[in-house]
Every structure is written in structure tokens, then in C-alpha cells.
Design a protein around this nucleic acid. Structure first.
Lengths: 173, 173
DNA sequence: TGCGTAGGTTCGTTGACTGAACCTAGGAGT
DNA sequence: ACTCCTAGGTTCAGTCAACGAACCTACGCA
């Protein structure tokens, strides 16, 4: 966001303070991709089609905020990956509620992605509640393309999401 | 947001499309204030301490998006107010989940505001669920300052929020 | 020697956010 | 009649974040 990402007059409001961390452009889409199993800079980049500099800045901000952790998964050549922390995992209800609202009021009821409870196969309501089992952990959520999905993109993330997959399972072996 | 509020590569994703509408700086705080019972330009302005031009732009964008409606509540002199539509009211779970996450992971567990179910007095979990009665309509939510609240500000909205009040009840008679 | 990949940094340009000033139109006070 | 006040805006110059293209580093491989 331009000129000040914080809301000085709202230090007392949890929503405002939260938005200072997760309310910047691209940030929640990076977190969404992390739930989709994206872990690498290059995969975020190809899927989000955002400026490299902004991605680097956001990844380090999210790491500093304790939402992601950076881990070296290979030495020589050095390779890094970004994983959700507990605080990051706790953001699933936020993403889910945005998705639910938008599916209804922005996408006009078209179903581009389907979320089900991996244990029982039931379709989730509000993105994180199973009508049979109650609140569902993100790791128990399975997603798959819905009837109105667009399956044209060819980046590694879009390709991986063409078949059913659980949240948080990495898109690469 | 600077340079393009939309996410062109993500036309297929409900979360991304939703964020194009509600993800801009200040937008969700305006919606939050609308839930708090704020309806007038000047009250939004005094409480949010944001640039007038941005407020005017956001109010008209939210109106165009069908989240708020503009209504003339008085002729001569002409006075306008902004009210949440059904699509706007449906955003409560989004705000509530952000607030819940932030209260835990950003505010460090301090309780600046308390949300209770107006019918039974029970404290809400996740900002919109009563442990006894289930999912609660925003109009049934009562909020009051918590033990860690900051009660220093003197604008009309902050003053009105110093005592218990239901969401959506206007802050002025 | 050259090419490819992963994970960045640098840099000039564009444009959204900022804050202050200004505008309109009707009351209200003196 | 003149001034001040309120509500709801618009205008404008300056700043700084986002953009995107180019560049960089370090290693592996042919």
C-alpha cells in the first residue's frame, strides 16, 4: 500500500492491527498459495505473476511477522522454501471466509473450486466447517476444480491444482 | 493499492476476486465502522483519520460494488448516509475472523473489545459463533470495551463505543 | 565454454495515497 | 447583512510503493 501500511489512529483495534500485517496487496494471495502447497519463490512467482521485488519483500515481511518460516531445504546450490507457521495456519478461516463471501457475491454463485472434508467427503460450508464433523483443520481440507474452473494456465501450481489435492501438501515431491 | 488493484492472473480464484473489492487500504475499516453503526461521511472521517479524498473514493467504490448503499436521510440541507447491503452484512465473518486471528497472534491475547451474543450474553468465539446458540447474526452481536481497551479518543464514534452497544445500531439517534 | 535454474537485487517509470486547501449549500447567531 | 458552522465533498502538489525489465550470484550440467 502506498504511504504507510499502518493505521495509526486504530492501535486499539484488532482488525486494524491485523490488517497492517495481512492487508497489503498480494500478501493474502501468497498465504493462499502457501495453503495450496506452494513453498518456493519461483512457484509463487509463476503462479501469482507479481513483480519479483514485491514477492521478495512480502516473503520477508511475512517471515518477520511470524506467519511464514524460511527454511533451507538443500545446500549447494542453496535452495530456500517458505512454510506456514502456527500463526500462518490460523489464517485459514480468514481466507475461507473471504472465499465464501466472494463465491456468493462476486463470482455470482459459480463454483470454480470445491472444498471438501478429506475424512468424510462432505462439502465444506464457509470453507472450514464440515456439516457432519464440525470445524475442520486445514490439513483435512481437500480441494479440487469445480464445474466452472478455468484450467488453461500452465504454470506448475495451476497444473498441480487440476487434480484433487489436500491443502498444505507440497505441490512438488 | 498502488498500480492496479486487481489480480489479472487470478480471475478464476474467488479469494483473489474478493480481495480486489475489499482488499484495498482502508476499505475493511470502513466496513467495520459501518458494522459499528457509523453511517455518515464525517463520522467515518473523524474516527478513521484518513484522507477525505480516499474516503470519498472508497465509499463510492463500495457503493458501486453493492456493499454499501447511499441514502439521503434529509433534504435541505442535503445529507447522505451509507448503509450496509446484504452483501455488506455478509462480510461480518471476514471481519470477525481477522479480529479473532489478530487478537491472538498480533495483540498477544489482550482483550481490547468483547463480543457477546445479545440474546444469551455468552461470549462469542470466532467473532460470530455463540457456543450455546451457534452462528449469530451480526445484529445480535453486542460489543463492549474489554479490560485492555484504550478509552482516550474523543471522536463521536469512539465515545459511543465506550459503552455496550449492538452492531448496526446507528451511533446517533 | 556456454546454458539453465533458483533466488534474489537494482533501477527508472507510473500512479495511488497523503494532507492541506478549497468549494457548495443551507442554517444559526448577532 | 454578515459571519460562522456543518456536512459532504473536490482539487492539487508531493511522496513513496508497486511495476516490470534488466541484471546478479552461485551452482550443476553438457
Amino acid at each position: 500500500m502506498a504511504l504507510g501500511k499502518d493505521y495509526d489512529g486504530q492501535r486499539d483495534c484488532a482488525m486494524a492491527r491485523g490488517l497492517e500485517l495481512i492487508g497489503e496487496r498480494w500478501t493474502m494471495l501468497i498465504v493462499r498459495d502457501a495453503f495450496y502447497g506452494v513453498r518456493r519463490y519461483s512457484d509463487f512467482l509463476a503462479h501469482l505473476e507479481m513483480p519479483r521485488a514485491v514477492l521478495a519483500e512480502r516473503l520477508s515481511a511475512l517471515t518477520a511477522a511470524g506467519i511464514l518460516t524460511k527454511r533451507r531445504y538443500q545446500e549447494s546450490p542453496a535452495r530456500e522454501e517458505y512454510l506456514l507457521t502456527d500463526a500462518g495456519l490460523a489464517l485459514w478461516p480468514v481466507l475461507a471466509s473471504i472465499g465464501t463471501w466472494s463465491a456468493r457475491y462476486v463470482m455470482g454463485g459459480k463454483v470454480h473450486r470445491l472444498y471438501t472434508h478429506a475424512d468424510c467427503g462432505e462439502r465444506l460450508v464457509g470453507g472450514s466447517v464440515c456439516p457432519l464433523c464440525g470445524v475442520v483443520d486445514p490439513a483435512e481440507v481437500e480441494l479440487r476444480p469445480g464445474p466452472d474452473a478455468d484450467l488453461e494456465r500452465e504454470d506448475p501450481v495451476s497444473v498441480a491444482l487440476r487434480e484433487p489435492k489436500r491443502l498444505l501438501v507440497p505441490i512438488r515431491a
